[in-house]
Design a protein around this nucleic acid. Structure first.
Lengths: 343, 343
DNA sequence: CGGCCAAAAGGGAGCGCTCTCAGCAATGAA
DNA sequence: TTCATTGCTGAGAGCGCTCCCTTTTGGCCG
């Protein structure tokens, strides 16, 4: 275990002694140096460097009641998180933003229901300044367990009835879906199908709604419920081909399913996009670009969503801001259609 | 921002008052209840529940100098982390193990060199009990910056000269590679090529060594250096086909490259496995299973590696254990060949 | 050159907890 | 009955820091 050496780390006191000033002055310098005269600032800085002083966060938190830490809760039953770079990208955005604000990222992964209580207890314990919560399913009990902690959700929670003080960041799932389907229609396709995501998530529901907005009286057989996985997309496509062999376009609720659908199409001897146009959602690079054929899809800026979530949370946390300005509200990011080969 | 309500949380003091005992007794009960008589334990427990008491971790850390938190450092230049479920799986294993030990996971993602100093400072700051560090490249400056924090590395660090007190968890890259290549040879293939990973990582070097162990005097043109990405694998395969059109088998240093290679092969009209057998490494589900054709590969249990890293670190941290037994040492996990269709 | 005032520096309390040690009751031995 | 012993429980001292409040300093005006 590389290095256990624990020579006692220097305290504020030690720095103060070395610089020949009081603890309070060192504290002021360490926290920005406001209202301390230049020569002293200089002396203190030198002492800090020489001693390699690093503030003890525990002691600081004890009195300030801030932690400079934010919890990221990923409540996802099993697999998806790991087949899907989605969260990794969000994490990256979050991490960048938190780093810029000197906050730490405490990652809470849950496995099954029991874990929810654990997470709730942790959040309630006031160990973090706020929470970013992901991937709630409609019936997820977690939100009701979260109290007393400022929270921003990733994706519109199912129970968010309009506003009600819930803050979330989402992309324009419905609008993006509409654009995708309109694109297919614009291509001259008339038998446009939809492979839905798991309908216990609002993103899947919203994308389905977007599909219906355009295909107002679509044959119900052209809509197949699936689950956001490649395998699910493949199965759904087969079923679609059985139900309506004349299908000439498919909008899949995410890229993974679109890729699965293309596999099923190839298997059945249909060409993409000549026989059946396929369009996905997310623009999950590099999979979309390297799919065969490269996938036309609806892009959402996932990393930006993560960054925004963190920014919103931190803004809400920032007590110094003017009272009115810093009540954050939800944000819905735009999507863009990325045309490649598949549609 | 869902819920800002901050009624002051109850302290030990409050619980003590309610239970009619001293602070010390409550503390004892909260920390396991050793040496406290049953009726008192009961009374304290009730008071804790009634008040919804949760210990203040900051106050506790201040005196115990433990944090019940471990940093996970992922130092990866840009893309790979996000195209590759590798880290997600490791994180999951780590998370499980830490949760079981009531430790928190503080995630530190670095972006470029400047970040290293930040991470080093954070670790040196003694905010966590230990660190799990990933994905070091041979020339990575991070290890030299880490001092005073027990650390376990994910994957053998390049500079770990035998032992030297460095603890890491890795899989048997060399042995796995040997097995893969032997399998190809056993299939009767004689022009076996290798697409390497990024050779600034020990995993890539070890896999190359394993290849050479078996193909002792391979034509150097049958070895192409690449970078672990699908695009890299594709380019490498094309080059291989140009250099040695008679190549009849390829061992790619990971699955992503194997998939890229298969794409290049298809593009050039070679059938897999009939004309060219392909084998990967990692067994990155579901990509390997759903590749076309399903990919034969060398499996390593990534989640288990994560779990093991955490376990090793925690064991080293555990002061209560007997002095001798708990000096952890590195672990190399076995790999297994998974036969599917591509070889 | 003294006095006044604002700004800068210091003193000290206390955040909530753990842990050592003292106190004290109950028990058994002398 | 008395005294040592054991085993709980309580009192109190800090852990390292921030922040309020007091004291000191230094600039400037009269």
């Amino acid at each position: 275990m590389t290095d256990q050496s624990t020579q006692p780390r220097p305290t504020l006191e030690a720095v103060a002694a070395r610089a020949g000033v009081s603890r309070a002055t060192v504290s002021r310098v360490v926290n920005g140096g406001e209202g301390v005269r230049e020569p002293l600032v200089e002396r203190v800085r030198r002492a800090v460097d020489e001693l390699g002083y690093v503030p003890n966060q525990a002691a600081r938190s004890l009195v300030t009641r801030r932690h400079d830490a934010v919890a990221v809760v990923i409540a996802e039953p099993e697999t998806r998180v790991f087949a899907d770079p989605f969260f990794a990208l969000q994490l990256r955005g979050i991490s960048k933003e938190l780093t810029a604000h000197d906050s730490q990222l405490v990652l809470l992964l849950t496995e099954g229901r029991d874990d929810h209580a654990r997470v709730a207890r942790y959040l309630a314990g006031g160990h973090v300044d706020g929470a970013l919560v992901f991937s709630l399913h409609l019936d997820d009990p977690l939100p009701s367990l979260i109290h007393g902690v400022p929270t921003v959700y990733g994706g519109r929670p199912g129970w968010s009835d309009g506003s009600h003080g819930v803050v979330y960041v989402d992309c324009d799932n419905r609008g993006g879906a509409r654009e995708a389907v309109r694109h297919l229609v614009g291509l001259g396709r008339t038998r446009v199908a939809h492979i839905t995501g798991a309908l216990d998530q609002t993103s899947a529901v919203d994308r389905l709604d977007g599909f219906r907005d355009v295909m107002v009286d679509a044959d119900p057989r052209l809509i197949v419920e699936s689950d956001f996985t490649p395998g699910g997309g493949e199965r759904a496509m087969r079923e679609l081909l059985d139900r309506r062999p004349d299908v000439d376009a498919v909008f899949a609720a995410n890229d993974l399913m679109a890729v699965g659908a293309m596999r099923a199409l190839r298997e059945r001897g249909r060409r993409v996009p000549e026989d059946v146009a396929v369009i996905g959602f997310d623009d999950m690079l590099p999979f979309t670009e390297q799919a065969d054929p490269p996938l036309t899809t609806v892009r959402q800026d996932i990393e930006e969503m993560g960054r925004l979530m963190a920014r919103l949370l931190l803004r809400g946390l920032d007590r110094s801001g003017s009272a009115v300005a810093d009540v954050p509200s939800s944000v819905v990011l735009p999507t863009t259609l990325v045309r490649r080969v598949s549609a």
